[in-house]
């Protein structure tokens, strides 16, 4: 049974209704967004479920996942920090900011802290060039822009987020302590 269809029958119906009935393929991207918001990333099974709904081959869904940078095939941190380093932001220090933030968290851009909480990514223009350095945070289906950032400001914010976040399987408050080692 198609788990995605089972969980979101209404949403999927709405998505399909946006496009002509003979153009089900157009629903691939919206379905990927739906699944990723729910599951955090796109697994092979998810691709197969979407392929079934959109009536295309799994490979065709996979191709779409591979082309677009916002689709992830692996679970990332609970909080995704996406820093824009494009030229306009770079001119206002975003690259240094990113390096500083990564050093603080002891990860490389694209990496996730060993506790699986924070992923820091370098992304392309987020259309906030006038308020750089900036990042966009993503937690589940919540998305927020954070402008005029410094490493210290970001870390403060992260700590406050941590306090409110708890791992589902344990009552331990989340730590932000790097566990050492080199992680990608």
């Amino acid at each position: 049974m198609n788990q995605l269809l089972k969980k979101f029958p209404q949403e999927i119906k709405k998505i399909l209704a946006k496009y002509p009935p003979d153009q089900k393929r157009a629903s691939v991207m919206p379905l990927l967004h739906l699944a990723q918001q729910d599951r955090g990333y796109i697994s092979r099974e998810t691709m197969a479920e979407i392929a079934e709904i959109a009536e295309v081959e799994v490979t065709e869904v996979a191709s779409v996942v591979g082309f677009y940078t916002l689709f992830h095939t692996e679970p990332g941190g609970k909080i995704r920090i996406q820093v824009c380093t494009d030229i306009a932001c770079a001119l206002r220090g975003s690259r240094e900011y990113l390096d500083g933030l990564c050093a603080e968290l002891d990860i490389k851009p694209g990496g996730t802290t060993p506790d699986g909480l924070v992923t820091v990514e370098e992304v392309k223009c987020l259309a906030a060039c006038d308020r750089a350095p900036m990042f966009q945070s993503q937690m589940g289906d919540e998305l927020e822009y954070h402008e005029h950032q410094t490493v210290a400001r970001t870390m403060d914010w992260l700590r406050s987020m941590m306090a409110s976040l708890r791992l589902p399987e344990s009552d331990e408050p989340l730590s932000l302590e790097p566990e050492g080692g080199d992680h990608e």
């Binding site: 490979t59 996979a62 082309f67």
Partner: peptide, 20 residues
């Protein structure tokens, strides 16, 4: 009519893959 191989990624990283 068997689109079971496709491009994955983009730019220079473009590669042929199959998921069937």
């Amino acid at each position: 009519d068997d689109p079971v191989i496709g491009f994955y990624n983009r730019g220079r990283a473009l590669e042929i893959r199959t998921y069937s």
